[in-house]
Amino acid sequence: MSAHMSAGSPAPDGPALDAVIELAGLSVRYGKRLALEDLTLSVAPGAIGLLGPNGAGKSSLIKALLGLVPTSAGRARVLGADVAHIGSRLRRRLGYMPERDAAFPALTGFQATRYAGLLAGMPDADARRRAHEVLLFAGLEEARYRDVGTYSTGMRQRVKLAQALVHDPDLVFLDEPTNGLDPQGRLEMLALIRELSHEKGISVLLSTHLLRDVEEVCDTVVVLQNGKLVRHERIDALARSSAEACSVRVVGDREAFEAALTSRGLTVTARKERDLEVALTSENETAPIFASAVEAGVVVRELRPIRISLEEAILHDLERTPD
């Protein structure tokens, strides 16, 4: 299921990488609870969507990749370096925007962003200049001299993004960046993320439970559920593979027809009053449907192509994954 983009991230201090994140049997355990279980994947540079329902292990994966929580088994490499021995050289190439409300207390937006730059090892003059630049980029021009404590939710998200970017990382982890944003704010945030990943060569790992955010911004999607990898694919490949389905109306024994479809590897994605929705194979071949009808002794009265959205495909994946 692994997918790689052809172009590597233009890392300023190293050669282009084939994979920004590599996991080999990675597990994370909180006491008795297994948050991540045996994850193995290799993620190419670009915009990566990390999808999954609440509690799927998205934030745990990000924290494990940042070295903030210890791994209980397996190996993880970020930008080519092992996170078990994560050092300041790797950390200064990473940016992190946490999911929950987090801020350096009692500082203005500018002070907090400059401070984040200083903590990443930037000289003071550069940290000041970059703080202004990324705050402008994040759309906090007017509010940058106000205390972060007075910011609205949207502004707090923006200042967190600015802090994650001030030291110009090569890979940014964005944990639910559109949380709490109004529709306009969400679109603006997604536009900023798109600019970073598609125009500036910064790899972005976007963790969200909103598929539409991933669809709008990402090149690759990694789907987690209950700490397990459900899917890892390029968005366009995923869209292709899941695009086609048929609505089939038959006269006769529907249950026998369903069984025949299943035996041919076809999936019934929905059952309606009179119709069955059947996902087609990647070749969009309808012949197995007719063969199934012959086998079950039913008459096909109607065969109508329908499109399965990306969301439905992923929901279908999640439903199929055992708890």
Binding site: L66, R91, Y96, A103, F104, A120, Q163
Partner: peptide, 9 residues
């Protein structure tokens, strides 16, 4: 803020 500090170098 501890999360912000310790995610940095």
């Amino acid at each position: 803020a501890l999360e912000l500090y310790l995610a940095r170098p």
